[in-house]
Design a protein around this nucleic acid. Structure first.
Length: 416
RNA sequence: GCGGGUGUAGCUCAGUGGUAGAGCAUCAGAUUGUGGCUCUGAGGGUCGUGGGUUCAAUCCCCAUCAUUCGCCCCA
């Protein structure tokens, strides 16, 4: 039997899980403060929820999706991103009744068949938000603000940089795309191999090419901002003014183009300088176009997604471990007494540890130390007789006798 | 999908064509009811996997898998 975990997957051991859990809980709590309600959608959907038109130009959909036929012969796909499923659920559940609507998700698994790297897994997890029915720029501003709020709540708002751009309306983009293709076509031979391929498939992506030749050509290329309608320009100006008013730092980046093709108007990315090539921790934008792509009447949408593994990587050095009260039990009946008392501490929310297999006094003490216990409670035969247990402060080494009830109230107040 | 690096003890890594070592960690003892420090000792390895060259391969060659860095893409 092959005992290796599948390529691009990992097992989150307790230390990592603790941070992931913290990220998910914090995210939901932050989102709730902005009026978001949690939604849970299936891990798999009919394939066309994600691949809306044949020959989809985005790599995520055309090359990286896990697709399978179910036993009934239907084409299904594992979720490669969070937004499309939520939009589908919006229709399936008739949530039009509830507009405007704010939905969030936390810790949902997402699958992409990619070449694994640090911060890039074939199964990763996202937290994110989607809001529907807000046409104005304030929704774009608030969405970005929530991104900041999340990172701040996680204590990782250092070393970040934010870029924003506007892709304009669908019409703006069609015009710009034509201009871009017309500009690059005479220079076709000079383009990098990647960009040659991109020219007709997804020419906007040439904008963020890293090839030096491509970048040289880009100097004289038509600019997206010159192709925005007055309306689009006004929307984007309001977004930037809103970010300024909230004191949120950002950089305008005219070459920022998102990989998913449903974005319109505002797009943004938050990067961390603590990660390597996979530096994006949050990215999103407005996707008024998506809802129409699903063949329904159009509804405004804005949102973002964030990879929990990347957030976790930034939080690596943070120690999330709680400090227990460790019980040292020696002698007849003491372990059971320790279990009984430990449960009382747990009932008031403390973390209590009892060495279940006993062991020498010394080894139990060592165990308490290894767990980084804040206090240890010593229950030996003398203590059983007197009914007063020894409470030892593991930092100062101080120790005194307390009756069980006093011990509980003392520890409840101590709050180490 | 493309190009490079790396796979040796639980972890971080030395090392040699004659079947292996350190530090940390673990366990035990010094110290029969008091942890961290120190000292002593012990356990733990098909040297990623499969093939080839060789009297002999952990080392050289090929393949493969995994991982990592960059590209691509993206959270």
């Amino acid at each position: 039997m092959n005992l290796q975990n599948p390529r691009g997957t990992y097992d989150a051991l307790p230390e990592m899980s603790e941070r992931l859990r913290f990220i998910e809980n914090t995210a939901v709590e932050v989102f709730r403060r902005y009026g978001y309600g949690e939604i849970r959608t299936p891990v798999f959907e009919h394939m066309d929820v994600f691949a809306r038109n044949v020959g989809d130009s985005t790599d995520i959909v055309s090359k990286e999706m896990y697709v399978f036929d179910d036993r009934g012969g239907d084409k299904m796909a594992l979720r490669p991103e969070g937004t499309a499923g939520v939009v589908r659920a919006y229709y399936s559940n008739g949530l039009k009744q509830n507009l405007p609507l704010k939905l969030c998700y936390a810790g949902i698994p997402v699958f992409r068949y990619e070449r694994p790297q640090k911060g890039r897994y074939r199964q990763h997890h996202q937290v994110g938000i989607e809001c529907f029915g807000f046409n104005g720029p304030a929704a774009d501003v608030e969405t970005i603000a929530i991104g900041f709020a999340l990172l701040k709540a996680l204590g990782i708002d250092d070393g970040l940089y934010v870029t924003v751009n506007s892709l304009g309306s669908k019409e703006d983009r069609v015009k710009y795309r034509e201009a871009l293709v017309a500009y690059f076509e005479p220079h076709f031979e000079k383009l990098s191999a990647d960009s040659k391929e991109r020219l007709h498939k997804n020419p906007l992506r040439i904008l963020d090419s890293k090839s030096e030749n491509d970048r040289a050509l880009l100097g004289d290329a038509p600019k997206l901002e010159d192709y925005l309608s007055e309306e689009s320009k006004a929307h984007f100006a309001d977004v930037k003014a809103g970010l300024d008013a909230l004191g949120l730092p950002y950089k305008f980046d005219g070459t920022l183009v998102r990989g998913l093709d449903y974005y319109t108007h505002t797009v943004f990315e938050i990067h961390s300088d603590k990660l390597g090539a996979q530096s994006q921790v949050i990215s999103g934008g407005r996707y008024d176009g998506l809802v129409e792509q699903m063949g329904k009447d159009s509804v405004a949408g804005v949102g973002f997604g964030s990879g929990t593994e990347r957030l976790e990587a930034i939080m690596r050095e943070m120690d999330m471990k709680r400090r227990p009260v460790s019980f040292i039990a020696m002698g007849e009946g003491t372990t059971v007494e320790a279990l009984r008392l430990a449960d009382k501490l747990r009932a008031v929310g403390l973390y209590a540890d009892v060495s279940l297999d006993g062991g020498s006094f010394k080894s139990q003490m060592k165990r308490a130390n290894k767990l980084n216990a804040c206090y240890s409670v010593i229950i030996g035969e003398d203590e059983m007789k007197s009914g007063e247990y020894q409470l030892k402060d593991m930092d100062s080494g101080e120790q005194h006798s307390l009756r069980p009830d006093d011990l509980i109230s003392y520890l409840t107040r101590a709050g180490k």
